[in-house]
């Protein structure tokens, strides 16, 4: 199965690099179970053309996904989702934790937007801290 529709057009003007946006789309599809182990991802050329992005960017996203153990790049054959990685399970398992936290924040009167910003700020801050080390 190589469904290009799994991907939506990345937003080039978003601050996040396009390859990261593509990686997140794949990871999301794997996490929710839309992509299963052994599923084939679209070819680089095909995907680049249909999303109208740079083929090098797609290649980079695939390389990084392989590096993170989400997919397998088989030379000449294409990109395949890896046998269900621990990553997917971990994410699903953490879901109740996040749901609980969101509920608590809402009960304090925070809007969804505020909560989203808080999460993002916290993540970025951690990222910066990690970078410092």
């Amino acid at each position: 199965m190589t469904i290009v529709l799994l991907f939506f057009k990345p937003n080039p003007s978003a601050p996040a690099p396009i390859y990261l946006q593509l990686m997140n789309q794949v990871k999301h599809a794997v996490e929710v179970g839309a992509l299963k182990s052994g599923d084939q991802l679209p070819g680089i050329r095909n995907l680049a053309e249909s999303l109208v992005v740079n083929p090098n960017t797609v290649a980079k996203a695939y390389r990084e996904l392989e590096h993170e153990g989400v997919i397998d790049l088989r030379h000449g054959a294409g990109a395949f989702v890896k046998s269900r990685s621990a990553a997917g399970g971990k994410v699903l398992a953490a879901m109740p934790l996040v749901t609980g936290l969101v509920d608590r924040l809402k009960s304090r009167g925070l809007s969804e937007d505020e909560i989203r910003r808080l999460f993002e700020a916290a993540l970025i801050q951690q990222e910066e801290t990690a970078r410092r080390r």
């Binding site: 080039p12 003007s13 396009i18 680089i44 050329r45 680049a48 053309e49 109208v52 992005v53 740079n54 083929p55 090098n56």
Partner: peptide, 22 residues
């Protein structure tokens, strides 16, 4: 994008930042 996939190097000038970004 297709030309690049075929191996071409592309150098293009533009006023449109969005298309460069894309």
């Amino acid at each position: 994008a297709r030309a690049a996939a075929d191996g071409a190097t592309i150098f293009f000038s533009s006023h449109q930042i969005a298309e460069v970004e894309q």
